[in-house]
Design a binder for these strands. Structure first.
Length: 536
DNA sequence: ATAGGGTTAG
């Protein structure tokens, strides 16, 4: 059929011309044309053609409805997806596998994951696509644990995994940053032979990088033929950037250009963020220029955000502010946040107040911004302002997110929070941590309270800082892991300066490699030094 | 004949 031939080549206009010139149109002709629009990203045309079809009194089938559901998924419209389900039930099509699968996909894409899972569980017949759609749906909604549970459930039912379920499960492992899960899925993958699939491989690279095992990520990358897939390269470059391996970022970037691969907007995000983490101002400016002039990539708000970060961290705060004002986008919270942090590090009160004013509007519930500004006031000895912030925070509902760290030991994840004593071996952990602190003090370490953002009294502050969650996780790692194993700790917030100094000294005194992933990136501590070179 | 999954991003 000509319509399908044209639509497979992406020639929608030609397909439509054939459709319009047909003297008689069967149900299949209508379905083919609607499907052609849906598959080629022309969802609105698919919908309006369906309206025409319906208005002219033509009958429709399950084929028509599943295409329409797929077209509507792109709209991510909550009300519309509910209406669609009502429609599906009205025309008694809910037991069709294709329709059920498409419907759960629509719900998942709208964020209605409970509805998606209800559709999934109530389907009398499920195909492999139904299973992979549901696993993917959980991943899209950041419910990684549930995605992995469903993946394992499929396996236990004796269903065979395909590249779709596997790549989603790998993404889920990356999402929880749990190496043990990721390795399990990788083992499943090895038995299937989908390892050369680029979707699978790029999520695998990303997973290993996010789990703190950058060498393993590189091994996967090297095992792939040097094809022309930009996403594979982006995943690897991004991994190196997260791990502060900026030399490797630059090398891979040059190598991909040599191979004739065009870096795209994602490549440049990683390259620029590598520059920002390493304090490479001139290089950053050069790449920003190269991106526009040589690779025709229009800088997005994210690229500008990276540049603001590069300039601000280097102390060029005025220049960073000018860039925010000059660009044609509305500045976002992360940009103002980056500027505010730079103002604190380089002591610029005037721009700090401007950045904070915007942040308070954009993120009224983020207590961290208020505390950051208050710290800047304190550094400038503006005690009235400090007291005002303190009072505001006490009276308002805004709370700082609590620090949490976790570590994988064998097949279990152990998590720690300041002030919480839920862990079965907590007394022992505190005892050993206090000993470690005493040892490290002999090397000249002093608890440094200026890094702490808690709004509490000073002596209490010192006590909390002493037991920050990453220190608890480290102590537990030292207690449980074999002497040569690197200690990998994950943390939900940015690591504070005190813990950073602490980790450096701890890596030297214990002769261990310590890897801490904070909210932004990885720090590799070894022999008293950190890979971030104090830029973070 | 015509239908429903998956990758990288501050």
């Amino acid at each position: 059929m000509l319509i399908n031939l044209y639509s497979k080549c992406g020639l929608l206009d030609s397909a439509r011309k054939v459709f319009d010139e047909m003297r008689e149109r069967s149900l299949v002709s209508w379905n083919s044309m609607i499907g052609a629009y849906t598959r080629n990203g022309a969802e609105q045309q698919a919908l309006s053609l369906f309206m025409n079809m319906h208005r002219q009194g033509n009958p429709f089938s399950e084929f028509t409805v599943s295409s329409i559901l797929c077209a509507c998924a792109a709209n991510r419209d909550v009300v519309q997806s509910k209406q669609l389900q009502a429609f599906v039930i009205k025309v008694s099509m809910e037991i069709n596998v294709f329709i059920g699968t498409a419907l759960l996909g629509v719900y998942a894409k709208c964020g209605l994951i409970r509805d998606a899972s209800q559709v999934f569980e109530s389907m009398p017949e499920k195909s492999d696509v139904t299973w992979s759609s549901m696993v993917a749906g959980y991943v899209q909604n950041e419910l990684y644990e549930e995605a992995l549970m469903l993946f394992h459930r499929a396996q236990m039912m004796g269903l065979e995994h395909n590249q779709f379920t596997i790549s989603s499960a790998i993404c889920a492992s990356a999402g929880v940053a749990a190496l043990i899960e990721g390795k399990q899925v990788h083992a499943v993958l090895c038995k299937t032979g989908f390892g050369s699939n680029s979707f699978v491989a790029s999520s695998l690279i990303d997973m290993y990088a996010k789990c703190g095992t950058i060498r393993e990520a590189y091994r996967v990358f090297s095992s792939m033929s040097e094809g022309e897939n930009v996403v594979l390269w982006n995943a690897m470059i991004c991994g190196f950037a997260k791990h502060a391996h900026s030399t490797e970022v630059m090398i891979l970037f040059e190598k991909m250009k040599q191979l004739g691969l065009q870096p795209n907007e994602v490549t440049y995000i990683s390259v620029l963020s590598a520059c920002s983490h390493m304090g490479l101002v001139e290089k950053g400016k050069r790449y920003f220029d190269l991106m526009i002039r040589e690779h025709n990539v229009l800088p997005s708000v994210i690229h500008y955000s990276c540049m603001v970060d590069i300039l601000g961290r280097a102390g060029l705060i005025g220049e960073a502010y000018d860039l925010i004002v000059r660009m044609s986008f509305d500045p976002n919270a992360s940009m103002w946040g980056s500027l505010l942090a730079s103002c604190r590090n380089h002591g610029n009160l005037e721009l700090a107040e401007i950045a904070a004013k915007h942040l308070f509007e954009l993120e009224p519930d983020n207590a961290g911004n208020h505390i950051l500004l208050s710290n800047i006031y304190a550094a400038n000895k503006k005690w009235d302002e400090v007291a005002r912030t303190r009072k505001f925070l006490k009276e308002s509902e805004v709370k700082k997110e609590r620090g949490k760290s976790w570590i994988e030991i064998k097949d279990k994840v152990h998590s720690f929070m300041v002030g919480e004593r839920n862990h079965p071996r907590i007394a022992d952990i505190y005892f050993r941590l206090d000993n470690l602190v005493e040892e490290i003090k002999k090397l000249g370490y002093e608890t440094d309270i200026k890094h702490d953002l808690h709004d509490v009294e000073h002596n209490r502050k010192q006590e909390l800082l002493r037991h920050h969650s990453e220190k608890l996780a480290l102590t537990f790692g030292l207690m449980c892991l074999p002497p040569v194993a690197p200690i990998r700790i994950m943390k939900n917030l940015r690591i504070c300066g005190d813990c950073h100094s602490f980790m450096k000294l701890a890596s030297s005194i214990t002769e261990r490699e310590i890897i801490v992933r904070d909210a932004y990136r990885f720090h590799h501590f070894r022999n008293g030094c950190c890979s971030c070179g104090e830029f973070w």
